[in-house]
Nucleic acid binder design. Structure first.
Lengths: 165, 165
DNA sequence: TTTAATCCCGTTGACGCCCATATTGCCCCA
DNA sequence: TGGGGCAATATGGGCGTCAACGGGATTAAA
């Protein structure tokens, strides 16, 4: 498997280290990441962590912006300046710096969340809250879609009553 | 047969393991699933379980979204982060983790329900309740359909009365 | 010298591997 | 048709391995 999937919660030890889940480490190796780069997610208290290819995605986006405008500058500052390298020690652990704690609110435990091409680092309680919010939003999306379909059928009223799929 | 059909209830042992029905295991093998991936269903307390091809459809869908908007993030979070691998041991059992118990309410027994290309995991009592609700909904739908049809046929007065089935 | 980072090793607990037993369902034969 | 026996499956438990975790010791940096 070459994608970051699933999630796990690990404890920070007295030296401020935490194990990256073995499964994630395998993906890191498979993808050939020589170093991990972490940047602060924009609207949530989480870090996005991945290889340097994480930047590619954002840089593409920046390239689309007018370089004379503030937006491009802001974005560049964000991804180039507001990131940090996470070094894996030989037991597969990283040290949780204040840089991480500040933005995530992490204290004693760290939640690792797979996101496909990268993974995220969360404070476990906040992650839980966020997860619930995500589910609610997706559920709304789903209901909106199905009621829209129902409304569509209503215009065909009575011609074809609901066919049980 | 290469689809997940029928259902079964198995007991969790003292080590937290439960046998996946032999029939399902055969399908798993036939479909070439090397690992099982479980997602928390959105609006019901069940897990959707299948191969990694479960993700393909979702990822196609995500690709349609603007990757910088919240919806894409939510969708990725849901399928990549809110899932878990279920490893079959060589006796065809999986271990029931807290991740599964939390969402499903499973305690001592597990209900396996075939759903064609994937299968579901339920707490048996909840499955029973859910089954009844589903039947009621379908029944209502059917009745609504037949009464609508009857209304339409009323203009053709009494020629063909509702067909019993 | 102090602080922090890195290496190395031991412990612990969870998980996978293996084998034993019980239970179920099926087939064959009387 | 009913019973016996076989095979497949579900279930229980012992044991080894590995990942997470804790901490000592050494090295590098401030």
């Amino acid at each position: 498997m070459d994608r970051f999937l699933s999630s796990a919660i690990n404890r920070i030890d007295s030296k401020g280290r935490v194990s990256v889940p073995a499964h994630f480490r395998a993906v890191v190796q498979k993808r050939g990441f020589t170093e991990l780069y972490a940047l602060r997610a924009l609207d949530i208290p989480a870090m996005d962590v991945g290889g340097l290819d994480l930047l590619d995605r954002y840089e593409e986006r920046i390239a689309q912006e007018d370089p004379f405008l503030q937006t491009a500058d802001d974005m560049s500052f964000f991804i180039h300046g507001d990131g940090a390298f996470l070094k894996l020690d030989q037991d597969g652990r990283i040290t949780v710096t204040d840089f991480l704690r500040e933005h995530t609110g992490i204290t004693t435990d760290v939640a690792f969340v797979g996101r496909g091409l990268f993974f995220q680092i969360w404070e476990p309680e906040r992650l839980k809250t966020h997860g619930q919010q995500v589910r609610e939003r997706l559920l709304k999306l789903r209901q909106a879609a199905s009621s829209a379909r129902a409304a569509g059928q209503a215009t065909n009223a009575g011609v074809t009553a609901g066919q049980p799929e």
